[in-house]
Design a protein around this nucleic acid. Structure first.
Length: 868
RNA sequence: GGGAGCAUAGCUCAGUUGGUUAGAGCACUUGCCUUACAAGCAAGGGGUCACAGGUUCGAGUCCUGUUGUUCCCACCA
């Protein structure tokens, strides 16, 4: 802040970048192991390297930055570890797309060539999001920045994999998994989104062998008929009992399959007959397993039909479906078609319809891992904020299925398994394997598949601190204190961190899980690319400043709840920043060139004692809120204190009387207490005042002090304020001209009040616009306006506030004004077009308005009459 | 089918172990460029806290039910 030329308006662009660079240059964000201090640790949820900063990040990072700055100022050794996620499927899709635009197919590349390309891509774009996070003011320790695919994290991944494998918790097997035909990889259950889509129920007749009878099956996916290996009915279904054990012929396909009985079949649903296709439906897979049915896969990895589909081989699944339905119709096997709406699984990355598919994949056995993760929250070692999210967490973990961790992708951690071509042994190893540990053959090759991204990000809280090495950082900063994330990511990520950490480190990864909601657009819709309704935080920062954005994300936000983003809200927070800026200008006007230290003097006036006491209490409340992670409430309290109590009242008092040291003390403390929320402007102003230390960032966070508390001063100011407000109110009601001084008589039998009011009459005179004031035990003025407020009786002689001639003139002017308005409304009501076309509500409103104006006019006329 | 959230001013939302007269921002009305700030100041209007019961001296807050709404999970042959 330049002392000579104080701009009337705060301009964040002149400030933010410069200050952030200074902070970084001086290493204020860096935390090192120091056993003399208590650590406080947050690891940042790593954004994808494909990503661009969106409002979700802005919210998440603002919350973390406020907490970490608060804790740092409280004296903790506060560490915030940043980093990025390789996001295997998302990044691979982007690179494949980029290649496609260049006319290159991924299939024409070797794995090595592709990875080279991917790393180059990471170098080029991976840094973007990091620089964007910095623009928010995030005080992360950038010297400790990590990447889920860096050397250390890769080592952690192998350690984790091998340990789970050795414990028998990882296995490979043929299972039915979700297959994305576009990404050409398996995906886990939690990566499938269900979308309601229009579809059809095709009722197909399966003719019973050696009979003219047939069974009708309803299906939504007729093309899977090629993989049917049975029809199933409920054993208690009287309609079909007699068919059990007989065979039917699959229409068109011509293969003969048995009719079996299984309780899974619901008599009420559809026709009560179910076709069993174990290779393409999870339930059928289980039924098939119970009855030892063969498994026939009918599709390729791109969802075209394979050789088992005969003449349909090579056709896309939907083309094949259409053709098959035609064929069924022609051959008389199609009984009817019903339109239905049904939920279809889609890929969470590319939205393609997922195909359940039998495949050889790697899995983690989840049951034993889930138990301690449930316990950890039940015991309260780790707590959700708000608490209700623990219910969702329990429910998910209690019903967990095995986790499919292998992906048919290249960008990621390659599974550390080497197959021996000679003896068939599977070598599972932390290090690279050169020869088979069993037969010493060198004819080995590594598993082609990579691991699910969440397999590595599940290790994030401890891998970033050096695990599996026993680093001093891990020993000191771990477990972390709080994880800040959105509820949408609890299943994907939070649970994985908890069970991974408990299994590997025997510790919970974090003590608290602070859950926030989604940032929605002003109409309450999710911000999304397809809707084009996303608000770019960088544009907001450009226009209003990072401090305003941060504060607007906190005001009225409460843990776990979604909240809507409005430009108007940011604007009001920008105004708040400007308010503080101008308050600082006022303080400068008063202290510059004078010997003001900002130390509290021995003897203080009542208003000085009041603001100091109020500040101390506010500090207490704000700290309590922050400790409980109630950031929105804390922000509101700061806003109210700074704007209402400090700016609107204390600064006005200080223009009349007051100690300049107190003025400086208060604003400096305000800057410090507000700093975690608005780091840039507070630093800028703090630097402009006399100060000890290099940066506001390292100031001690204000605390409540008993000796600053002054109930008497607070009570006294309350009385002064009540009188001022009553007088202002009366002036307004009686339309006393602005600037007109009035005489005031106050009656009170309380001698304490009497002395407070008398001693501070200068304040009352100035702020209530008085000519003079008289305070006594008894006031008796017959011709007066009287107001009784909570504390005293206030009288104003009537002649004193009403200059008859002036008042008459004012009323006549008002009369003209109202007449004009009334004329307008009446004209509108006479307008035929208006009456016939406007909604009834608007018309009624206008009629009402006209009536109000007529009444007002009558009152004004009466008042003019009274004044004569 | 199972679970959770939400319902408070015209709009968007706070309101934390129950406590006088329910708050903020924006919008609205009125008057002010009052020497920090018009991105401002002062005053004001506007709420049966979804509905119905219950607990209590006292309920926006706790309990039960109802309605509306959003979301999550599961399933949909």
């Amino acid at each position: 802040m330049e002392k000579k030329e104080l701009s009337k308006v705060y301009n964040p662009k002149d400030v933010e970048e410069r200050i952030y660079e200074t902070w970084q240059k001086n290493g204020y964000f860096h935390a090192k192991v120091d056993k003399s201090k208590k650590p406080f640790t947050i690891v940042m949820p790593p954004p994808n390297i494909t990503g661009k900063l969106h409002m979700g990040h802005a919210l998440d990072d603002t919350i973390q930055d406020i907490i970490i700055r608060f804790k740092r100022m409280q004296g903790y050794n506060a560490l915030w570890v940043p980093g990025t996620d390789h996001a295997s499927i998302a990044t691979e899709a982007k690179i494949t797309e980029q290649l496609r635009k260049e006319g290159i197919s991924k299939d024409d590349m070797t794995r090595e060539e592709f990875l080279e390309r991917a790393w180059a891509w990471k170098e080029e774009y991976g840094g973007n999001i990091v620089s964007q996070i910095k623009k928010l003011g995030s005080s992360c320790d950038w010297s400790r920045q990590r990447f889920t695919l860096d050397e250390g994290c890769s080592k952690a991944v192998r350690e984790f994999f091998v340990r789970l494998y050795e414990k028998g918790l990882i296995y490979k097997g043929e299972r039915l998994i979700n297959w994305c035909p576009k990404c050409k990889t398996s995906i886990s259950d939690s990566e499938v989104n269900f979308e309601e889509k229009d579809g059809h129920f095709w009722h197909i007749k399966y003719k019973i062998e050696n009979s003219d009878e047939y069974l009708t099956v309803a299906t939504t996916r007729p093309e899977t008929m090629f993989g049917d290996t049975a029809l199933a009915v409920n054993p208690n279904d009287d309609r079909y009992k007699r068919f059990i054990g007989k065979n039917v012929m699959i229409p068109v396909v011509g293969r003969v399959i048995p009719i079996i009985a299984d309780d899974y079949v619901d008599i009420e649903v559809g026709t009560g007959v179910l076709k069993i296709t174990p290779a393409h439906d999870p339930n059928d897979f289980e039924v098939g397993a119970r009855h030892n049915l063969p498994i026939i896969n009918v599709m390729n990895d791109d969802a075209t039909m394979n050789e088992n589909a005969g003449e349909y081989s090579g056709l896309d699944r939907y083309v094949a479906r259409k053709k098959l339905v035609e064929n069924l119709k022609e051959s008389g096997h199609l009984e009817q078609i019903k339109d239905i709406k049904h939920n279809v699984g889609t890929c969470y990355r590319c939205s393609s319809v997922v195909e359940p598919r039998i495949s050889n994949q790697w899995f983690v056995k989840m049951k034993d891992l889930a138990k301690p993760a449930i316990e950890c929250v039940k015991k309260g070692t780790t707590s959700f904020i708000p608490e209700r999210f623990s219910k969702i967490y329990y429910h998910w973990l209690e019903n967990i299925k095995d986790w499919c961790i292998s992906r048919q992708l290249w960008w990621g951690h390659r599974i550390p398994v080497w197959y021996c071509a000679d003896c068939g042994h599977m070598n599972v190893s932390r290090g690279d394997v050169k020869k088979c540990e069993k037969c010493s053959s060198e004819n080995i090759h590594q598993e082609e598949d990579t691991l699910d991204t969440w397999f590595s990000s599940g290790l994030w809280p401890f891998s970033v601190l050096g695990w599996p090495e026993k680093t001093p950082e891990l020993d000191y900063f771990y477990p972390t204190d709080v994880l800040v994330t959105g509820y949408d990511i609890i299943f994907f990520w939070v649970v994985k961190m908890v069970f991974s950490s408990l299994e590997m480190t025997k510790r919970e990864p974090f003590k608290n899980i602070l859950i926030h909601g989604l940032v929605r657009d002003s109409r309450g819709r999710k911000m999304s690319k397809s809707l084009g309704n996303g608000v770019d935080p960088l544009e907001i920062i450009e226009k209003y400043g990072a401090d305003a954005l941060r504060f607007s994300l906190m005001m009225g936000n409460s843990p776990g709840n979604d909240f809507r983003f409005f430009n108007e809200k940011v604007e009001s927070c920008r105004n708040f920043a400007n308010k503080i800026w101008n308050a600082a200008r006022f303080v400068h006007m008063n202290i510059d060139g004078e010997n003001v230290t900002g130390d509290l003097p021995q003897n203080m006036s009542i208003t000085d004692k009041w603001i100091v006491s109020r500040f101390s209490k506010t500090a207490k409340e704000v700290t309590e809120c922050l400790e409980k992670f109630e950031l929105g409430v804390a922000a509101q309290k700061l806003y109210d204190f700074i704007w209402d109590e400090f700016c609107d009242w204390y600064i006005e008092f200080s223009k009349i009387s007051g100690d300049k040291n107190v003025l400086l003390w208060t604003i400096k403390n305000i800057l410090v207490i507000l700093h975690p929320f608005m780091p840039f402007i507070t630093e800028e102003i703090w630097q402009s005042f006399p100060h000890d230390g290099e940066t506001i960032m390292l100031c001690k966070y204000p605390v409540y002090a008993e000796n600053l508390n002054d109930e008497k001063a607070e009570e006294s100011v309350k009385i002064l304020v009540s009188v001022i407000k009553s007088v202002r109110n009366m002036r307004r009601e009686k339309n006393v001209q602005h600037g007109k001084k009035i005489a005031l008589y106050i009656e009170t039998e309380n001698s304490n009040y009497e002395s407070i009011l008398s001693e501070n009459s200068n304040i009352l005179i100035k702020l209530a616009g008085l000519k003079n004031i008289s305070v006594s035990k008894k006031v008796d003025i017959p011709q007066s306006i009287t107001v009784i407020n909570d504390f005293v009786k206030i009288c104003v002689p009537i002649d004193d506030i009403v200059d008859r001639a002036e008042e008459t003139a004012r009323l006549k002017k008002e009369q003209e004004n109202v007449l004009k308005q009334l004329e307008q409304v009446e004209n509108r009501l006479k307008d035929e077009k208006f009456i016939s076309r406007a909604p009834q509500k608007i018309i009624d409103g206008a009629k009402e308005n006209a009536e109000i104006l007529r009444q007002k006019l009558r009152k004004i006329e009466q008042s003019i009459e009274d004044l004569k």
